[in-house]
Simulated scan of single mutants.
Amino acid sequence: MTLIERYIFRVAGAAFLATVGVLTAVIWLTQALHDLDLITSKGQSALKFLTITGMWIPSLFMVIAPIALFIAVMFSLNKLNGDSELVVTAASGLSPLGLLRPYLALIVAVAGLCALVSLWIMPSSFQVMRDAWTEVKSDFLTRIVRPGQFNTLESGLVFHYRDRGPGGELRGVFMLDRRDSNELSVYLAENGIIAKIDGKSYIVLQTGTIQKQDKGAVPAMVTFDSYALDLSNFGSKLYGGPLKPRERSTWDLLNYDVSDPYTRDNIGRFRADLHERFVSPLYALAMGLIAFAALGTPRTTRQTRGLAIGGATLIAVLLRVGGFGVAGALARGPDAVPFAYALPLLGMVGAGLYAFRSALVPLLRGGRFVPAEAR
């Protein structure tokens, strides 16, 4: 990069970091307030609170980064033009392509970071969040729940134990699960203990019965000597049951098992999440190029740029809203897959054509365009 290109890159890069930092902090704080009960009612430490809420940051970054890049490119170009620096650089021979180079370096860097977050960091963060919530539920049962009381762990799930024995053993365990309106389950056991098996937290019940009744069916009862319940199934439905598509690695989504009942019932969500991971970085490229196309041409201070800013903002909003709409269509059927990739690519191509329209018009008319450096 030349000296002027490095200067432009620093201005745009600083604007991007400031914008993405502020937007992420504001939205993260809003999300963190929803999980404040980790400290107030579940007795967790501040470190656990920050660990769980911090795992939202990669997914927030995926949505915020293209928007922050758009704002940063618009801000830096408007600042450079307001200080007459764009006019001076153009008069000194810097071509539109030369002006694009530092911005393209920033756009590609942000898109690459989005790809890294989307394909690897974000699913890993959701797995960490799921494991952390399972530990919270385990701690809640062993430390917070008081003996002799009926404790509502969540709507429809009641837990009770008579007293606590040596080594944290729970005596006289009772659990009522009616979260599903079509199914009622009652667990009774003489003893229970929280244990980790293969890295997962379980409550192991000993010497008891399970009574189940489906809607309109005859009640059934099963006796057991030992029965292990996965704690990930007893808690927020957001983190219970099988791994959600967003919690699985990209490799797992590329090679999912269609014979698995959960995968078969949620094939649309698997397809949508997989393609969204590959499409998301393209929106960073499109957003950055749209902002450059709108304000990349030098103008005097007497020429208004409000119309260009408003038009670019409207196009960027429509593009991103359209992307969210296509993401919903992906979950409904595979026919939307081409549109998922075509939408950001169309934005990129359209922005590129508009940004270099002054070079393309002579070519279309049969003339020959000569770059400023060669004149």
Rank of each mutant, 00 (worst) to 15 (best):
V145D: 02
L243D: 15
L113Y: 05
G208R: 06
M287K: 10
R248Q: 08
L113N: 05
P334C: 08
D37E: 15
R146W: 02
F292N: 11
A228M: 14
I203Y: 00
V63T: 06
A132D: 06
N266T: 15
I144T: 11
A293M: 03
P362A: 05
A312G: 09
L282S: 10
L282Q: 10
Q44H: 03
M62A: 05
L77W: 07
G21K: 14
L50R: 10
L80Q: 13
P66Y: 01
V11N: 14
D198L: 02
L104R: 07
G167D: 07
S358L: 02
R375A: 03
T209G: 05
R302E: 14
I64D: 10
V128K: 15
A25N: 01
A286I: 11
G288T: 02
G367E: 14
A291M: 13
V173P: 01
F369L: 08
I197L: 13
Q206G: 00
A355F: 04
S185Q: 12
I121D: 04
W56G: 07
K212W: 00
A195F: 02
D273M: 14
F270P: 04
F292G: 09
R305H: 00
D225R: 15
L170W: 12
V87E: 02
V218S: 05
V173K: 01
A359W: 03
G165D: 12
L238Q: 08
T263L: 03
A355M: 01
N266I: 13
A331Y: 09
A372R: 12
R271H: 08
V158E: 03
A316Q: 12
A327Q: 11
L345N: 01
I194V: 15
T209E: 10
L364K: 10
I8W: 09
W120V: 11
S226H: 01
L38R: 06
A91T: 13
G21V: 12
D335K: 02
L363A: 11
I121E: 07
V349P: 00
L253Q: 07
G21W: 02
V370Y: 00
S138A: 15
G325I: 08
M175N: 00
Q44A: 12
G288Q: 09
N78P: 00
K42I: 13
Y283Q: 00
S76P: 12
S358V: 04
L116W: 15
K244I: 01
Q206M: 02
D257N: 04
A336M: 05
D260S: 10
